[in-house]
């Protein structure tokens, strides 16, 4: 009997809340994220005797344009380290959805891609080679039609296998140009010496090279000033 945390990330309108509702039913609570006017929705479900807390992150096309929504989603994935991050993808607009998916794969390997809106894709004559996608991206891909509850059992089973450590992932890492890669390699050792295993060094280096002030600010708040990381889980 264990308790796991599952984050749902994804572009706007990909069915995250539909999936969240289908998984958690009435076992939900909503409020705001600490210090933000962004809705925080959390719920839970039981599966094979374990309890899974699901966090419905705000829908975003990216994690780096520094809107409040994007900061919430980024901070949750990188600082709160959910046991699994499920990236919900619109099967009818995969190219667009890859932007966020690849960003998340740079942050963590504990990722499952939920290929949602499969009914819409089928209706439009779009066929997705699920196995090829999973092989290419190095993480499990589960097709679903959340609105009709199709594929949810598969998703829950895959989540279970991942939290139990039964799935080895090899998340695709985007290679950048020589100059960027050289700089990343130069920065990684010092980042590792500061953050150890707490943060992915390659990802932090890439963010710093991109001049991500919002991340710098979040890092300062969380570590340099020794501010407590907000406690996740249920409110009082």
């Amino acid at each position: 009997m264990a308790d796991y945390r599952i984050a749902l990330a994804g572009n706007p309108n990909t069915g995250k809340s539909t999936l969240f509702n289908a998984l958690t039913g009435l076992r939900q609570h909503t409020g705001n994220w600490p210090g933000k006017t962004v809705i925080h929705a959390e719920g839970e479900y039981d599966f094979d005797g374990d309890t899974y807390t699901v966090i419905d992150l705000p829908g975003t096309y990216s994690l780096y344009s520094n809107s409040a929504d994007e900061e919430v989603a980024r901070d949750y994935i990188i600082f709160e380290k959910p046991d699994v991050t499920v990236v919900v993808l619109d099967a009818t607009a995969l190219e667009r959805n890859m932007n966020l998916a690849l960003q998340v794969l740079e942050m963590t390997g504990k990722v499952i891609l939920c290929l949602n809106l499969m009914d819409e894709a089928e209706r439009k004559g779009i066929r997705v080679d699920v196995d090829a996608l999973a092989a290419k991206l190095g993480v499990p891909v589960v097709p679903t039609t959340a609105r009709d509850g199709v594929g949810l059992k598969d998703l829950q089973k895959t989540i279970q296998r991942m939290v139990r450590g039964e799935i080895i992932t090899r998340p695709l890492q985007v290679r950048y140009n020589e100059e960027i890669e050289k700089n990343v390699a130069a920065m990684e050792p010092s980042i590792r010496s500061i953050y150890g295993e707490k943060l992915p060094a390659r990802w932090v280096a890439l963010r710093l090279l991109d001049g991500d002030d919002s991340l710098l600010k979040a890092l300062k708040e969380r570590w340099l000033e020794r501010k407590e990381v907000p406690v996740h889980g249920r409110g009082a």
Binding site: Y61, S62, Y64, S65, N99
Partner: peptide, 8 residues
């Protein structure tokens, strides 16, 4: 620029 690229 970042925002426009992220939007496609």
């Amino acid at each position: 620029r970042r925002r426009l690229l992220d939007l496609g």
